[in-house]
Simulated assay, not measured.
Amino acid sequence: MPEHVLITGGAGFIGTRVARRLVDAGHTVTVLDSLIAQVHGDDPEVTSPLLRSLDGVADVVRGTVTSADDLRRALTGATLVVHLAAETGTGQSMYEIDRYVEANVGGTAKLLDILANEKHDVRRIVVASSRSIYGEGSYRTEDGRVVHPPHRADAAMAAGDFDVHMPGEGPITVIPTDESAKLHPSSVYGITKQVQESLIMTVAPTIGIEPVALRYQNVYGPGQSLKNPYTGILSIFSTLIRQGKEINIFEDGLESRDFVYIDDVVEATFRAATVADAAGGVFNVGSGVATTVREVVDALFSAFGSEVPTRVSGNYRLGDIRHNVADTTRLRDVLGYEPEVAFRDGVARFVEWVLSEPLEGDSYQRSLDEMASRNLLK
């Protein structure tokens, strides 16, 4: 049955593609987005290709999830909500705390308050959660037990020890983190995503709405913002390579993430919205493969066909985790989907797109300076 889908934050990198996927499947889409300058530029109708990509695809309501009136306008006729709207960026969240909490927690609370107290047609909410809620994730001890270590200590990292340790244990080895793992985020952003997910998963069933939570890993691909310094290292490093500038590799370069290509994220999100068995489920959305920062740099150099100087600096950011890789078993077993795009193939597609885009200014250094001035970058 065709749905009328509201996508909050739907003019963003993920939301615009989810909108197209839903419309291609016969559904109707409304997008609610604040069109912030950090993502869309100062004049979105002119400066935002993402916004223009929604022409003829979705009705766009310019507004914010922190406004109940904007939410009411956007919810008119909606039968399904894909809740993507959020402030993103681990580092920035550590000093713009009120803004992150207001948008991520407050916006979700306003959405649920309306659905709990006013007439509507919504039957399912899919919320974009995050791998950040796991903190350091899952590790295995020498005798085979699964443990969830505490956050790394500033003093240890200052001494050059970037590894994760479990008090009272010998060496521990990172393993894929499944959805039953302990939730203990290490940043304000992670805390807000945990609360956002918990609000949806707890409140929705009590008001007759099916909740689904998607714990996105590190999403990348064509269309990712190249001017927002908080969107991830692939965009940041690509800009530095194009500018011929040195890449500063934090820690020892062996920290790793689970990079998942945008097309795989879109398909997983579409299935979470439309597959009956998804109701009530929590799903990791990742590739299931860990990639180190050094491997990221090598893949980018290969795709660009050129290199710039690199420096493994030992710098580190408070709130960052060491490793992350998702266990995607539940995604496969319940939603019937396995990510298809290998990292190097995805990077090649990403770089091909990057080279077709204007070269952006270097706002990344400014973001680092902001963190350093607050003693969050060491």
Rank of each mutant, 00 (worst) to 15 (best):
T90W: 01
F283C: 07
R20A: 13
E357V: 00
I97M: 00
G208V: 09
W353C: 04
A299L: 05
D42Q: 11
K119S: 13
E3V: 02
E340F: 01
Y230I: 08
L234C: 04
T173V: 10
E246G: 02
D327W: 03
G170V: 00
K245L: 11
R271W: 10
G106W: 06
K378P: 06
Y95N: 06
T291P: 09
V23Q: 03
Y189F: 07
T47Y: 04
L335P: 13
S373D: 11
V29D: 06
E267W: 09
A273H: 08
G223F: 05
H165L: 03
I236E: 05
L54H: 08
L32Y: 06
T292S: 15
V18D: 14
T291A: 05
A159Q: 14
L6K: 13
P44E: 12
M201I: 11
H40F: 05
S198H: 08
D59V: 14
E340N: 11
D121Q: 08
I7Q: 02
S48N: 06
G26W: 02
I241V: 13
V174P: 00
D320N: 03
A103P: 04
P229I: 05
V212A: 02
T141M: 06
V188Q: 06
V60N: 05
R322L: 10
T28E: 07
P222L: 05
F259C: 09
A276H: 03
G221P: 13
G26A: 06
L214W: 10
I114Q: 04
R271Y: 10
S356V: 00
A86T: 11
L199M: 12
V296R: 13
V212K: 02
A268V: 05
F13H: 12
E179A: 01
M371H: 11
T310E: 11
G190R: 03
W353Q: 07
N315S: 12
I249L: 04
I321F: 04
D113A: 10
I236H: 05
E102W: 10
T328V: 14
E338L: 15
Q365P: 00
R131C: 05
V285Q: 10
V126F: 10
E45M: 08
F283V: 12
N375C: 06
D24K: 09
G305S: 10
D163W: 01
K378F: 15
P185C: 05
E338R: 15
D121M: 01
S129W: 04
A153K: 14
V260A: 01
L80P: 01
R271P: 13
H120T: 05
P150G: 13
V31R: 04
R152E: 08
N324Q: 12
G281W: 00
A85N: 08
E360D: 03
V23Y: 00
F259R: 12
A128F: 03
A348R: 15
Q194C: 02
G361F: 00
F162H: 02
V61W: 01
K245Q: 15
T239W: 03
H165N: 04
V101W: 02
K110S: 09
G170T: 10
A68R: 13
S302G: 07
D327L: 07
A158R: 15
E360H: 10
D24P: 00
D362R: 11
M201Q: 14
A109Y: 13
R215T: 09
A116N: 05
N375W: 11
A74Y: 07
T88F: 04
L54Y: 09
G9V: 12
N218P: 01
Y364C: 01
